[in-house]
Simulated assay, not measured.
Amino acid sequence: MVQIGYTMMTEQAGPRELVDHVVRAEGVGFDFSVTSDHYSPWLASQGHAPYAWSVLGAAAQATSTIPLMTYVTCPTFRYHPAVVAQKAATLQLLAEGRFRLGLGSGENLNEHVVGADWPTVEVRQEMFTEAVEIIRELFRGGVVNHHGTHYDVAAAKLWDLPDQAPPIGIAVSGEPSCEIAGRLGDLVIATEPKAELVQGFERHGGAGKPKVGQLPVCFDTDRDAAVKRAHDQFRWFAGGWKVNAELPGPANFAGATQFVREEDVAQSIPCGDDVDEFVAAVRPYVEAGFTEVALVQVGGGHQESFLDWAGKTLLPALRAL
């Protein structure tokens, strides 16, 4: 049976609200949670971008059973991989083993803030691979010295290391990233229900490991209002990750999506309160081989109504998948 998760979307709510939301998600029966890790929202209308790791630390203390996960952290520019390893180990201790470290090669939107040039995707993948290897080495304990192509680590050691290191999830979008995920990841992460991503992950060593997908939804008893909100805050989704990874700011996303229509968004994001439409949107992930699907409710001020409905109506329907 597929597990259904809840997304703490840091781009659309403040830190206290995000923690309140995941507490409620645990209460209504979501199987796990994930948290975006951004420095900026995609669109100004989303309006938020608190520090994800502070939110996760608070969530670890406010909840008791729901698993937590970054979806995803980039360990190559804004954060040095040695610092990511320390943060993840600490959070695993706070969460008492409920944390998974989701990693990805990043987006210019968030990483340009440190003033570094945004390199080609090939260089980004090189940097990412080296970063994951450093994190894994630090998770093993002991003193780490590393002098690589992109990073130096000098006499680093994690002094507070959990008995079980956080499982590492790796985001994929094509064959090169599937190879990295299969070789270095404990699970795979994707935002599209493509069977070839699951198959690529399994082919490179990921057979039997969790496969986690993510799907935006927009619940509202007024379907027209849901469509308008989804268009206003989530039309950036239409660009695809090859484009989205390159754009540097909300104004660029607004310009790139100015011709995306409401009906275009409604075709890719289930809107309203027809549970069958939501189930139909999740089904392709299940058929593609994903074992977990995290839902993103669009609109920071519309989480409570969604969570109430999900607990009573949506989650029981999705269990049937």
Rank of each mutant, 00 (worst) to 15 (best):
Q86N: 14
E26I: 10
A320H: 07
S40C: 09
M8Q: 12
I4Q: 04
C178K: 02
I180N: 04
G14H: 11
Q258R: 13
A49T: 03
G27T: 11
A230M: 04
Y151F: 15
Y285F: 15
E287M: 04
N108V: 03
T70E: 07
A320S: 12
D117A: 14
V217P: 03
D308F: 03
L56H: 11
Y51A: 09
D222L: 12
A320D: 08
R136P: 00
L314F: 01
V296G: 00
G115H: 08
W241I: 12
A266H: 05
I4F: 15
A52V: 09
Y151C: 05
K194Q: 12
I4T: 13
K312N: 04
V279T: 14
T76C: 15
A288D: 08
T65M: 11
I135V: 15
H204E: 09
S305V: 02
M69S: 15
F99A: 03
Q92L: 11
H146F: 15
T120K: 13
I134E: 01
G115A: 08
N145C: 12
E262H: 07
F237C: 00
V121T: 13
G142S: 12
R235D: 01
Q125D: 03
P15K: 13
H204K: 11
A207K: 09
Q297G: 02
H80E: 06
G208H: 11
P210Y: 07
V243H: 10
F219S: 03
A251I: 00
L43A: 09
V83P: 04
P119S: 08
A52T: 13
L184M: 11
G311W: 05
G97I: 11
T73W: 07
P41F: 09
V83I: 15
I168V: 15
A85F: 14
G104W: 07
R319I: 02
V132E: 10
Y39Q: 10
L215R: 01
N244A: 13
G289C: 08
Q86F: 07
E246F: 00
V293P: 01
C271N: 06
V286P: 01
D232N: 11
T10R: 08
V172F: 10
G185F: 10
V121W: 10
L247C: 02
H150C: 09
G206D: 03
L184H: 11
G311R: 02
R98G: 11
H48C: 06
A251R: 11
S105M: 10
S105K: 09
D308N: 12
G27F: 06
P162A: 15
K194C: 02
A288L: 08
V143G: 07
H38N: 09
G239E: 07
E26D: 10
F30R: 07
I134D: 01
G14N: 12
I168Y: 13
G272P: 06
E137F: 00
C271L: 12
